[in-house]
Design a protein around this nucleic acid. Sequence first.
DNA 1: AATAAAAATGAACACTGTTCAATTTTTTTC
DNA 2: GAAAAAAATTGAACAGTGTTCATTTTTATT
Lengths: 197, 197
Amino acid sequence: MNKDNIQENLVNKGRELIKEKGAEFLTARKLSEASGYSVGTIYNQFGNMDNFVLIQNYLTLDNLYNRLAQLRASGTAYQRLNLYTQEFIDFVLENKNLWFLVHNFHLHNNNRRFSKIYLRRVVQITQLVESAFKALFPDIPLPERILSLQVLWLSLFSLSAFLTTDTLDSFSKINKRSLCELLLNTYLAGMKVLEKL
Amino acid sequence: MNKDNIQENLVNKGRELIKEKGAEFLTARKLSEASGYSVGTIYNQFGNMDNFVLIQNYLTLDNLYNRLAQLRASGTAYQRLNLYTQEFIDFVLENKNLWFLVHNFHLHNNNRRFSKIYLRRVVQITQLVESAFKALFPDIPLPERILSLQVLWLSLFSLSAFLTTDTLDSFSKINKRSLCELLLNTYLAGMKVLEKL
DNA sequence: AATAAAAATGAACACTGTTCAATTTTTTTC
DNA sequence: GAAAAAAATTGAACAGTGTTCATTTTTATT
């Protein structure tokens, strides 16, 4: 194994583990065994396991951003917002375990350095959607538009946690896909009304 | 200590621990030390720690339901939905640690018995809001109304996770309270439009 | 080739949830 | 009330976490 790419090797192997066996399977010892590196090496490279997870989540958000960014020029603003949501749902369903980790992770040693680059990706995605918002609601002043956007994006984001588990199955027969779509369309319809007030 | 109320004593003591020191502090040994009962007794009473947490979450949902139920007869349907949301936010902010545990808990030994009584409380809260929905949107047929209601409630529910941590603080200057209120009002406005189509 | 610097290692520590033989307490029986 | 039986309580011990750091191995320098 290439000695110069320890970090990369570990990150890739860890990503495999999460995808195949679930987020719970990602432990220092199992990663060590699966990767061939010792536990100590993992800690030399990442400091602690929280940082490792943060990197994984950063990559996941990165992947999501790239997927959404491809739709940047497609359709009308309204269509684009629907496409974004579609693509978002697809991504989450295709990467359940990775997305589960994005949600269900709380730092033990809250590391500011990694938290910031992590956050930057979330902001980046927000900005992507904002351009569609701008075209769709030209009459709403910027500060309020940003607010509405953040509320919508955060709602969809937090709601998407339900897509990664079967928690909802016993609560409602609602289709997971239409769960997010209904939120988007009802919210957008509401914004259109409130815009004119 | 009253020997007949071991469960009650443990539950109460555990609730204190969560409230005061946070959900992470709730471990078998710390609960043992704080309550005066041995670790084994905790396991005799609850089988495992997951069940203990499920009971705590059940109680939390119970408390929330009782708070909301008091508003059952107040104001118009629209006002009531706003009051419900207000009260919901208040409850979450007053019980941050307990609510954090409701969200950030995933079963290790998925126990069906407790999961069901747990779920019943969630349904009960949904039914509470449904009566307000019925009065507000009489023209929407029942199945669709239920769907819209579930989407809204699940959105608010999942969004409320952000109220229990400071994750949002570095993302947006948005007020946590108005985060939920904006979602509610925009969504309701949207429903009013879609009802007439 | 000998020395110095850097990197990798894994046993050991403190913490989890959990179990279960041994002890203590309570109840039953006489 | 004492002895026997049943029930309840206990906490040391096990397997699993994250994490550390003296020791070993590898690499770089002289």
